[in-house]
């Protein structure tokens, strides 16, 4: 049982104590909005420069100030896109993904100012404007992401009710097994309703169903409407079908919230790749026609 006394162990203890003492806040509030302030200062300086510096012949991307803004913007875009690598590569390094996310959000927003000033408000049907528009779309999807990250997790947790995804599916399987044996005494018509409910794919409904949480073709709901008999066996089956419907509601709720939390990434990331391609074209063409 080593009571190792070494410099490193003591630093680690201090680091651990700092972690245990530290405030517990979201990425938006990280370090008292450190990155928000940095982004605001960066934007403020860019605007002040734009207003105060006399750009000849007129403000655009080709003046020395325009080049400066463009270089900063390009650097930021490249760095921001590296978040995807960062979050998949935890070691080595003593960094935190929360700080990176915080910086990503606020510096990303500051690109609206820097990018716009870089254009010098010259918009046209060309690859330069394409890059600008793609950038704004990436930022817009990002803003959606920030909003859902800040608002949806609580409902995801409430919907979960301490169950894991695997447990939700297990619960459904358990109900299905009971349904199958409870449905044995039913008549042909009623049994068909149950069979249809059991045979339907839990994940039917496609992307639309997932995002809206509406499943108009849900066979379980239809079975509940359609069951006609009124014997004890039918009542038991109806009770089980209601359990099945509630379990499906929970699973679909989880799917819907997770879909809303993830859907924007399917736009944000391809758009980022398109943006980088457009930027490459933009930069090459600018230097080619220097």
């Amino acid at each position: 049982m080593a009571t190792k006394v070494s410099g490193t162990s003591n630093t680690r203890f201090k680091q651990d104590e700092r972690r245990r003492d530290s405030d517990h806040v979201s990425f938006l509030k990280h370090r008292r909005f450190r990155w928000l302030w940095i982004a605001l200062v960066l934007s403020g300086i860019s605007i002040a420069g734009f207003v105060l510096i006399d750009q000849e012949p007129r403000p655009n991307g080709g003046t020395w100030y325009g080049y400066t803004l463009g270089t900063i913007g390009l650097g930021l875009i490249i760095w921001l896109s590296l978040l995807g690598v960062r979050k998949r590569r935890i070691n080595p390094g003593a960094w935190s993904l929360k700080a990176w996310t915080s910086a990503h959000v606020y510096l990303g927003l500051s690109l609206i100012v820097i990018g716009t000033l870089h254009t010098g408000f010259q918009i046209g049907w060309n690859v330069h404007t394409l890059a600008y528009v793609l950038m704004l779309l990436v930022i817009a999807t990002g803003i959606y992401g920030v909003i859902v990250y800040a608002t949806l997790p609580a409902s995801l947790s409430a919907n979960r009710k301490e169950m894991t995804r695997a447990q939700m599916l297990d619960a459904l399987t358990a109900i299905d097994r009971q349904l199958e044996s409870a449905a044995q005494p039913l008549g042909r018509a009623d049994a068909d309703w149950v069979i249809a409910a059991l045979e339907q794919d839990t994940f039917h409904g496609g992307a639309l169903g997932r995002l809206t949480g509406r499943y108009p073709r849900c066979a379980t709901a239809r079975a509940l409407k359609g069951m006609a008999g009124s014997s004890g066996a039918v009542d038991r089956v109806i009770a089980l079908l209601e359990k099945r419907r509630d379990q499906l509601t929970q699973i679909r709720g989880a799917l819907r919230i997770r879909a809303l939390l993830e859907i924007w990434l399917f736009i944000h990331i391809p758009l980022t790749i398109a943006l980088i391609a457009a930027l490459t074209a933009h930069v090459i063409s600018v230097f080619y026609y220097w």
Binding site: D16, F27, N91, G93, A94, S96, L97, K98
Partner: peptide, 14 residues
């Protein structure tokens, strides 16, 4: 591991 527990460091939202 430098930086301490990876689970905490890898959380994007805190």
């Amino acid at each position: 591991i430098e930086g301490g527990p990876a689970c905490v460091r890898a959380c994007p939202t805190g």
